[in-house]
Design a binder for these strands. Structure first.
Lengths: 171, 171
DNA sequence: TAGTATTTTCAGAACTTATTGAAACAATAG
DNA sequence: CTATTGTTTCAATAAGTTCTGAAAATACTA
């Protein structure tokens, strides 16, 4: 691989890691993901460890997390005992997996908690303003939930690209 | 204020803080924001400190950050010397401010970095696959940038609610 | 079965980020 | 001007998170 390409891939990996840490995602997890996206072939744990200078334990834990997110899968290469990893390469599928997980892990619990707030606040006059604002916020979060749901289902029904086309046309 | 309402507001504040920390936002900043959203009246720094059990410095820094995000503003109450704070109460405006800031701070720099990756990778045959995937990812990030731009501009043109209506109709 | 290769786990270390508290600063009133 | 009230800043430190490395577990081979 040329030095230029190596440098470009290194920049890619570090950009992805930097971005992820602004969005509440472990930087190393994102760097591994980026490395696998940038790599044509599947990589072994040892290659990942060497390229990113991380320990075996760290690599193992973050690969597990990436598999839990559905972004990376294990593959066997030939008759080798060792396991290799490769990323989902289609960016839309990637996006939809992320949407599905974040919806499930982070949006749905908030909807539940806000509904509990409303229940807890009761019916009294003194809580009217609070209830109104909580309801508005709940609506907003439900909208986000709805949109993420659409993105998550995108593998099947491809509604999102159509909506985006429309949105662009409305500019 | 009734105990029920107090409990409901406390749950609201802690839910918002919890959610924020999953999205790369300082938990205390989110708790202050939630407290101001939940409160009918503007609050003084001392009230915020007391309610959330945080130090003056912490409160001051996070209020400053909230003002930088355009989510909270300073208000004067009567002839008092002390300053009070209140949040933007309209959830759509709130949403659009957040979209604007995150676009500017976190999406635009990534677009620049990915374009730099493409430049750095050069034209050679060996980087063809990497360039193709980087371009796809860049497209995706640009789409997100575009959508956030639409949300950010929403105060003026209200395109988003129409798109959402449409999206719901497509279900 | 024992032996070897590989992966996972987890307690403690290293690192990162958030918070405190006190000093410096600003604004106002007497 | 000086005292008073309130705000901001920032070095020190606390809290939280991630990472390491070695031990335990697992999987395969012969």
């Amino acid at each position: 691989m040329s030095d230029r390409l190596k440098a470009a891939k290194a920049r890619f990996v570090s950009t992805w890691g930097e971005m992820a840490s602004h969005w509440g995602i472990n930087k190393t997890m994102a760097r591994i993901h980026a490395l696998l996206i940038a790599s044509d072939a599947a990589l072994s744990v040892d290659e990942i460890m060497a390229t990113l200078s991380i320990s075996r334990g760290n690599a193992s834990m973050n690969l597990r997390a990436l598999m839990d997110w559905g972004l990376v899968r294990r593959v066997s290469v030939g008759s080798e005992r060792r396991e290799y990893f490769q990323s989902e390469k289609d960016v839309w599928n990637m996006c939809c997996r992320i949407a599905r997980e974040r919806k499930k892990r982070e949006i749905e619990p908030v909807i539940g908690a806000l509904e509990e707030c409303l229940r807890e606040a009761g019916e009294g006059q003194d809580s009217a303003a609070f209830r109104r604002r909580t309801k508005e916020l709940l609506e907003l979060v439900k909208t986000l939930d709805f949109v993420l749901g659409k993105v998550a289902a995108q593998e099947k029904n491809a509604v999102m690209p159509r909506v985006l086309t429309l949105l662009k046309a409305m500019s």
